[in-house]
Design a protein around this nucleic acid. Structure first.
Lengths: 217, 217, 217, 217
DNA sequence: TATGAATGAGCATTCATTCAT
DNA sequence: CATGAATGAATGCTCATTCAT
């Protein structure tokens, strides 16, 4: 079908003789994609998925409308790329802010702090990126929601803590990861909406999460 | 609740002695609304907000397309009515399942049990009804999301517990209410997706929530 | 005029035994019609033909929506009844204001004065009533436009003047009647829009019309 | 004139060095617009504003429905473009037919002749183009009606005559311009409807107009 | 005679995507 | 590799009119 983007999933492209898919994505091409993603990010955050048209993105990116489809198979793919990007950024941000940690509480607080700082520097980005996929498109149940990937990351962190014995032994890391993401999401949204102090939000959320993971003997 | 939307207030200039626009909403009218809401519920659950057209609802309800707009000003109003309905049902369901409760844990478990039982009897309804309003329509920020109303209900329950001294004194009921809804939502969705046993889900969620609200001395 | 509206076209109703069309239009029926027409007048003036729905009229009249069609076959018939009413009113108004007239100029001035006074007492009514029928409905070419009836009235007045020899002998009364209505319409609309003094408008229009009808030897 | 309607101003945030949205409106684009306008003209004349749907225009123009909205923000804008076009055509037509003129009567006769000839070559176009804006859309009072622009053109012509002293000194050019348009409109419509000879119409109308503007000492 | 709930063809408009250049 | 004009199925909604009560 389309040739430049995705469809051939790594292993399937073997035979095709003509059209080697340009192994070195020319500088111009990369620049286009960068501009489109930047514009998409801004618009998805400002107007939401349904309020943003591919045309708007192209225009804001300063490229032709057709160029959009040179880089993304459709609107959803573009959104997922945006979500991915935000996710990666957050992870990097969190990694950089990883102070030395001596307790569970400190660890959680550090990560949350990174999340909130990222959110302050990139307002609205997380909220937009975590949008539920079911609401974006019907019958796309195969695709993985960004929010779930995030939960899985938390799960593995919790697993590490479990290995160290700092969380309650009856904790199911995967389940806890998802629950925890729910806490951050809903709690963060509420705090933002009512204008709660970042410090206070951090305190309250940390406390809730730590307690939900531990049991004092 | 209100549904007789009246685009024109129409004080009608003339004398008009009697007034009273429609004090008794006629059996036929009520039946229409009932059918439309029932169809809307089914379709919103099956296909989501964006996958459901007013026409589909009307057709499924067995009424004319125009009749839809006799009862709801627009699609969003219809969705909110559906969400409201589901919310009320859940509340009633929970109230009925209120066993005698002797501890915080027992209390939370009872409510969660009601929620999960309701969800089993009405699969998908809660997930649909809790859909984020920002994703439904752009610039409808004034409207209250069902999920927030639910959080507020939890908040008042938590407040009662706080008055009894069974939750940690440093608990902010409103914040905790939202956090708790996040836990249920995300945890419930995860459990449903991976097919976790209801009993197990209930145990895990109850444990997480109780811990998040208490601190053992 | 019409009461059971159109279907039996006066001469065709001879045989029908049952349903003598209620030769004495009950008081209630007349009252309904009166209310509807009054509401129609107000709305047609305020919002124009296309901006007014039969429902709006019924509601403003304080009658059921179906009642509208008990009195008028359709919206257009209702509009024409309104135009007719306005036309009759204006004629009556003009007749009452007929001072003794000793010259053509005086005669024209008197009629115009009546028209403007009527317009001041009934703002917008004439403008609305004179609406071009072609703009109201497609393929209703058989119906007579109010504006044409008005032109014909002017024509017969001009004929009288011609008989008295006060207008130029080469005047075609019918043509002149229409031209004159055009002058009043467009001139009046302009004067109203730019807020010209009534006195001044009257002077200017009278002057133009008198001149257009006479030739000084 | 302007037609590249740009719903979003879209300063596009990013750098964007080149700018210039579409300095040369591509041949294809112009051709599309031409076809749409031609189709619109035919349909507006044949069926009137309310009898013509954007879909009909697109279909008749042989373009997709969406293309219509690529060139006009909405139906009204398309109609106004049509009216503008007709107006410009008429003006050009009149300018070309400007014979040497030695008297007011001759001048008026020449212009009217041009108008009637244009109307004969383009039947119905003037009638359609002069449609009252209030009848097209409610609450668009800001837009200038073609008929008013025409009146203003007449006004300036009358002003020129006044400067030469060939019209009565008490003439208000602006008012007279509007009155005169009323005469042409209504008189022309009447003549067309009853099938008056063009020559005769021209004579009668010229006579009326000349007289309305002059006073013999 | 009156009602008002119901109707459904019809409307103006949008937008994700394609394709000729 | 890029463009932007073109597309047309689809959408949410209206409103003149009917008809069961």
């Amino acid at each position: 079908m389309t040739n430049n983007h995705a469809p051939e999933d790594a292993d399937t492209a073997t035979l095709s003789v003509e059209e080697a898919p340009s192994p070195v994505p020319s500088k111009r091409r990369l620049e286009s994609r960068r501009r489109i993603l930047a514009a998409a990010r801004q618009l998805f955050v400002e107007r939401g998925y349904h309020g943003t048209r591919p045309q708007d993105i192209s225009k804001a990116a300063g490229v032709g409308h057709g160029t959009f489809y040179l880089h993304f198979a459709d609107k959803l793919e573009c959104f997922l790329a945006f979500a991915e990007e935000a996710s990666a950024e957050l992870e990097k941000f969190a990694a950089e802010h990883h102070a030395d940690v001596h307790s569970l509480e400190e660890g959680i607080r550090e990560v949350l702090k990174a999340v909130f700082e990222y959110s302050e520097e990139n307002p609205g980005v997380l909220a937009a990126a975590l949008t539920d996929i079911n609401v974006l498109a019907v019958d796309e149940t195969d695709k993985v929601m960004p929010v779930d990937r995030w939960a899985e990351q938390w799960a593995s962190t919790i697993q590490e803590w479990a290995d160290k014995g700092v969380v309650a032994p009856d904790t199911d890391p995967m389940f806890a990861g998802h629950v925890l993401v729910g806490m951050i999401r809903q709690g963060g949204a509420y705090a933002y909406r009512v204008g709660l102090e970042p410090k206070e939000t951090l305190d309250k959320l940390t406390r809730s999460i730590v307690r939900s993971l531990t049991t004092t003997p």
